[in-house]
């Protein structure tokens, strides 16, 4: 068995952009520690909201577009799996289209609620596109809008699932 370290996607993206003649992407680099909120109650008594960036939408909703899409979708956690869709420009969609749980893990989370590991799942999950070029727009527009929703719905914990 030969194990390799995690893929350095920043390095590989840089190399690829350079080889293709694109200007280098300026990755976000935070040096200061993030704020750290203490848990108010144990996980088994908490309400958890899922936020996923794999471009998931529900049949009947407007799909995402691929150019700096800052919009998000509210998806009921009771949406049947067959009504969930995946659209994205930056990752292989085949697994997510076969089983959305790989980037939008509602089924395993519901099981853990049943088992008493997690208190409950927020009735609404939030999805967006990811791959938004402007970190400023994410920080100043999308992030506060999502945080507002969680606060308004008295969410205890947030799980963020990129693709």
């Amino acid at each position: 068995m030969s194990r390799q370290p995690p893929i350095d996607y920043i390095k590989r993206t840089r190399a690829q952009y350079e080889a293709l003649g694109y200007p280098a992407y300026d990755w976000v680099q935070n040096t200061e520690n993030p704020e750290f909120a203490p848990l108010k109650k144990p996980v088994e008594a908490s309400t958890l909201a899922v936020i996923a960036s794999g471009g998931i939408y529900r049949e009947g909703q407007i799909a995402f577009h691929y150019k700096d899409d800052l919009s998000f979708r509210e998806i009921s956690i009771d949406t049947p799996r067959s009504a969930l869709r995946a659209t994205h420009f930056a990752y292989d969609l085949a697994p997510a289209r076969q089983d959305p749980n790989v980037v939008f893990p509602l089924a395993p989370l519901k099981r853990l609620v049943k088992e008493g590991v997690l208190g409950r799942l927020a009735t609404t999950a939030y999805t967006f596109m990811g791959g938004i070029y402007s970190a400023r727009k994410v920080s100043q527009m999308l992030a506060p809008a999502l945080a507002d929703r969680l606060q308004a719905n008295q969410i205890d914990l947030a799980l963020l699932v990129p693709a």
Binding site: N30, S53, G130, A135, S139, L142, A158
Partner: peptide
Amino acid sequence: MGLIAREIES
């Protein structure tokens, strides 16, 4: 995602 997490955590 990290930027959004930082905002929510704040």
